[in-house]
Amino acid sequence: MNIFRLIGDMSHLLAIILLLLKMWKTRSCAGISGKSQILFALVFASRYLDLFTSFVSVYNSVMKIFFISTSLLTVYLMYFKFRATYDSNHDTFRVEFLVIPVGGLAFLVNHEFSPLEILWTFSIYLESVAILPQLFMMSKTGEAETITSHYLFALGSYRALYILNWVYRYYFEGFFDLIAVVAGCVQTILYCDFFYLYITKVLKGKRITLPA
């Protein structure tokens, strides 16, 4: 473990808590893409299958359980409890155009052709594009609530910090995972436009309006 990965995980944790807080306090999931949340649940379900088979550390297991349970809770809140406030008219990204190519790529490009490894690879690729329905929805609605902006900033920062973690681990531990690094860079690049808007607008107290 290093400081970059620790702050990254905390940023990821913060993002999920911010989202749950927004939904719980406003009793609404307006402006949130349910499709992205389903993709995140799929990412965690396919990545943490080794939760019961390989023990890494208490921290690792606790975080995996937290991510799986909160992602399922988020999907439940969006599609059941606060379903009336779910904005399905603007959440129209065709996720099959993400899941199918990502599924195929995971079969073709992976470290080892085994079920667990292919599912892990699928999860890594899927996570890199899972935010697209959310960004697409924001471009259609033309704006985002401030707390949703904070959620996205924390979520985008987590993988950006993981990139620093991989640089650190490469130089100090000789650790390098090309699949995770490439997908992590793609994922972070997708947030760049939002990061720009967040830093130039939200931090000055304005609301984010798209297209900029």
């Binding site: 990965r5 995980d9 990821h12 080794d50 390989s54 890494v56 550390s57 690792n60 975080m63 995996k64 991510f67 080892e112 892990w120 993981y162 973690n165 650790f175 995770a180």
Partner: peptide, 10 residues
């Protein structure tokens, strides 16, 4: 080939 390195990242 590299031994099965345990996946220790989230």
């Amino acid at each position: 080939c590299n031994h099965k390195k345990k996946k220790d990242e989230l």
